[in-house]
C-alpha cells in the first residue's frame, strides 16, 4: 500500500484537503446547535456519506455491482456492538476491529467478482447478503437473534451521546472521504475506471485486474464496516432489519441520486434521500412510489446524479466526475467504451 500512502502525502502538500475540512468544521458548528432530532438526522447523513463513498468506489468507479453492502454495514455494526457487549472491549478498539474485519470479509467477496460480472455478481453478492442476514437472525447465542440488542453509546468531552457520535462520525468520515478521494484521483482511480470501462483493454495495458478489483472491494468494505460501527453507537440498538435489502436499495438510491463516480455525490445523495425520507414520514403510502420514480428518473434523465450540476454551478470548477464512460444511463459518445464492456 505504498502508493496510497504516497498519494496521501502529496495531497497533504497540495492543500486539496482545505475545502473538505472547512466544510466539515462548518457542519460541526451547525450540528452542535441542532436539537437531538435534527442532529440525529445529520449524523445519519454523515455516516451514510462514508458508506456511499465506499459504495461509489465499487459501483461508480469500478462498475462492480454489489448488493452486499448493507450486510457489510451490518457486520460492522454487529462486531462493534457485540465486542463491547460480550467482551467489554472499549469502543475505539471494537470499531477498529470491526473495520479491519469487514475489510477482510469484503475482500473475500472479490473471489466471486473475479469469476462473475454484472448481474451475476450482483446476484451472488445478494445471496451472500441474505445468508449474512440469516446468520444474524439465527445465531442468537452470539447475535441476540432477530430481537436485536442494545449497543453502548459513546460520550466524549462531556457531550451527550448524539453529539459525541456526531463529532466522531464527522471526523472519521472527513478523513475517510479525503483518503478515498485521493485514491480515486490517482493512478488507482484510473485503474478502477479502466476496469469498469473495459477490463480486457485494461488487462492488455498492464493493469493488474485482480489486484485492482481486490483493492476496490477492500476499500469499499472498509468504509461500510467503519460506517456500521458508527451506526451501532448512533442507534444504540442493533437489529437485523437495519441492514436488510431495503436498506441496501436505499443506499443505491443515495449513490445514484448523488452521482455515481463522483465523491461529492456521496455526500449529497445521503443528504437528499434522508431529507426526502423525513419529509415523507406522513405521506400515507407514497414513499415507495416516489422513491421508485426518483430512481427511474435519475437513471434516465440525470444519469450522473446531482453532483455534476453542483460543480457546474460552482463557477466552472473542474468536475470531479470521471468523465469518460458514463455508466448509468446516458448514450455513450465517441470516447465511450466498446459495447461489450458492461455485461460481458
Amino acid at each position: 500500500m505504498a502508493v496510497p500512502v504516497q498519494s496521501i502525502r502529496s495531497a497533504w502538500r497540495s492543500g486539496s484537503w482545505v475545502y473538505p475540512v472547512a466544510i466539515a468544521v462548518v457542519v460541526a458548528l451547525i450540528g452542535m446547535t441542532l436539537n437531538p432530532y435534527l442532529l440525529f438526522l445529520l449524523t445519519r447523513v454523515v455516516i451514510f456519506s462514508m458508506l456511499v463513498a465506499g459504495l461509489n468506489v465499487l459501483m461508480g468507479y469500478s462498475g462492480l455491482l454489489s448488493f452486499a453492502h448493507a450486510a457489510l454495514f451490518g457486520i460492522g455494526a454487529y462486531v462493534t456492538g457485540l465486542m463491547q457487549v460480550h467482551l467489554g472491549v472499549p469502543y475505539p478498539v471494537a470499531l477498529l476491529t470491526a473495520t479491519v474485519g469487514v475489510t477482510g470479509a469484503g475482500t473475500l467477496l472479490v473471489l466471486p467478482a473475479l469469476r462473475l460480472s454484472g448481474i451475476h455478481l450482483a446476484i451472488a453478492t445478494l445471496a451472500v447478503a441474505q445468508a449474512v442476514h440469516w446468520v444474524l437472525i439465527n445465531w442468537s447465542a452470539v447475535t441476540f437473534g432477530a430481537g436485536g440488542f442494545r449497543a453502548p453509546s459513546i460520550a466524549i468531552f462531556g457531550l451527550n451521546a448524539t453529539q459525541s457520535i456526531f463529532l466522531t462520525s464527522l471526523v472519521l468520515t472527513t478523513i475517510g472521504y479525503l483518503m478515498v478521494r485521493q485514491l480515486v484521483r490517482t493512478s488507482f482511480g484510473r485503474k478502477f475506471v479502466a476496469i469498469r470501462d473495459n477490463s480486457v483493454a485494461a488487462a492488455a495495458n498492464g493493469v493488474n485486474v485482480t489486484a485492482t478489483k481486490t483493492i476496490a472491494f477492500a476499500l469499499s468494505a472498509g468504509c461500510a464496516g467503519l460506517a456500521g460501527g458508527l451506526y451501532s453507537a448512533l442507534l444504540g440498538f442493533v437489529a437485523p432489519e437495519s441492514f436488510n435489502l431495503e436498506q441496501m436499495i436505499l443506499m443505491k438510491v443515495m449513490a445514484v441520486v448523488g452521482g455515481l463516480g463522483t465523491m461529492l455525490g456521496s455526500m449529497i445523495g445521503p443528504a437528499l434521500v434522508i431529507f426526502l425520507q423525513e419529509q415523507l414520514r406522513d405521506s400515507q403510502g407514497w414513499l415507495e412510489i416516489i422513491f421508485g420514480a426518483v430512481l427511474i428518473g435519475f437513471v434516465l434523465f440525470l444519469p450522473k446524479g446531482i453532483a455534476p450540476l453542483i460543480y457546474r454551478v460552482l463557477a466552472g470548477k473542474r468536475t470531479e466526475t470521471v468523465e469518460t464512460g458514463p455508466r448509468t444511463g446516458q448514450k455513450v459518445g465517441l470516447s465511450a467504451p466498446t459495447d461489450r464492456a458492461v455485461e460481458n
Binding site: 436539537n35 437531538p36 432530532y37 435534527l38 438526522l41 442507534l235 437489529a239 414520514r281
Partner: peptide
Amino acid sequence: PAGAIAAVRKLIF
C-alpha cells in the same frame, strides 16, 4: 429502528 428513533425525537423536539 432508525425510523423509530427519528420519529420519537421528532415528536419530542
